[in-house]
Design a protein around this nucleic acid. Structure first.
Length: 378
DNA sequence: ACGTTAATAT
DNA sequence: CATATTAACG
């Protein structure tokens, strides 16, 4: 009785579609029915909008919601058609018990109606959160086979997709790690065994920020650095909601050197005979990470060199002297010749340098594990 | 192409 | 401050 109407509007109790339809069927008043339906659809649409950002991670949710919305819409049409037997006037507003104006109905109700009438298309068209996807696809054409986007089961190839994939892992990966390589996805290993070099780009967070309704705290996967960024971001948003938009050229998402990626880098480095003799191009080719550019490697190498020159004492203590090696490289520029013969120091240093994971010195006393362990990275 | 440096962004 | 990217110079 009254209970029904009471519980439906003031405090919303989620119902299954079935229950809702049953309730709807029990509702005699046409206008009330339509408003209930309207409300329900609205909620669905709201939620759909909320998870739009995560549509890659929650494809099924998206599907279900869309499905439900469409179903309800059809149901609404059916009711309406049923109610207005005289089929002639198609545009009669459903609420028209009182019928303000026939033709030019102006008012929220009309708008509402239009709204739920066209809800389904709204989702497909009007949601433009993903301007980025365009960019993705543009950049993706480097190594793309089909589009992986539709296959969330196996989202993490190697690093084919510059942007999107890391989202799943974005939520756990923000710990400060000592030194150089702050891994984007620190605990990837635990999460999935797939060697995962995906770039956790700020795209995700940008998308989040862009979609207004986002919770804003998830932050990016690379380094949340929790405190500052979120606030700053919000402030920025408040100050200038719109101004920048597309600017000139959209910036390339910054490469995040995940532990895996860095490990490859180091491996390549050691195969090439050390930091000082390895050249960006060679490194990049050895790493076999598609999408990786010379410049990125170069930049990384630069930083790498700086760091190992800065704090060699600890690493050099054990064995020979990485310093010597790096210093006496004056004469011999034998580049891609041998790996082991000359100096294992480079690798050693390298190992120490990027002791991101594996809890430094846990099981593997060997700083350099398998050399030719170039795994199957397709 | 390679190594640096500086400017800039995150 | 640390990390990344980019442009520019040698």
């Amino acid at each position: 009785m009254e209970l029904l109407s009471l519980d439906s509007s003031p405090l919303f109790v989620p119902k299954t579609i079935t229950d809702f339809l049953a309730q709807l069927a029990a509702t005699k008043d046409g206008s009330q029915r339509s408003s209930e339906l309207d409300g329900y659809v609205k909620r669905l649409e709201d939620e759909l909008r909320k998870i739009e950002v995560f549509k890659r991670e929650l494809p099924l949710c998206m599907l279900l919601l869309k499905d439900a919305i469409e179903l309800l819409k059809e149901e609404g049409m059916r009711w309406r058609r049923m109610e207005e037997r005289p089929v002639v006037e198609v545009f009669i507003p459903l609420k028209g018990n009182s019928e303000e104006d026939g033709g030019v109905v102006s008012g929220k109700e009309n708008i509402d109606k239009k709204n739920w009438m066209s809800s389904a298309q709204l989702w497909n068209t009007s949601i433009n959160v993903f301007d980025y996807t365009k960019r993705d696809s543009v950049e993706l054409k480097l190594g793309n086979e089909e589009d992986d986007r539709s296959v969330p089961e196996n989202p993490i190839e190697v690093s084919n997709n510059r942007a999107v994939e890391g989202a799943l892992l974005a939520f756990r990966g923000q710990n400060e790690l000592s030194g150089f390589a702050k891994p984007c996805l620190k605990e990837v290993k635990e999460v999935s065994e797939v060697p995962n070099l995906c770039l956790m780009t700020p795209l995700m967070s940008e998308a989040l920020a862009g979609s207004a309704s986002a919770n804003s705290k998830t932050s990016n996967g690379c380094k949340g650095s929790g405190s500052g960024s979120g606030v700053a971001g919000q402030v920025k948003l408040l100050n200038k909601p719109q101004p920048q938009q597309q600017q000139q050229p959209l910036r390339k998402p910054r490469r995040c050197w995940s532990p895996e990626l860095h490990r490859r880098f180091v491996d390549a480095l050691q195969q090439l005979g050390g930091t000082e003799v390895a050249t960006p191009k060679q490194i990049r080719e050895l790493m076999q990470v598609e999408g990786l550019t010379n410049d990125e490697v170069k930049s990384h190498l630069q930083k790498y060199r700086l760091h190992i020159r800065k704090l060699p004492p600890s690493a050099a203590a054990g064995q020979g002297n990485a310093l010597l090696m790096s210093l006496d490289h004056s004469g011999d520029h034998s580049k891609a010749n041998n790996v082991q013969s000359g100096s294992p120091q480079g690798p050693l240093l390298a190992g120490g340098f990027a002791k991101c994971r594996s809890t430094t010195g846990g099981e593997s006393g060997n700083s350099r594990e398998a050399e030719e362990d170039e795994k199957s990275d397709g």
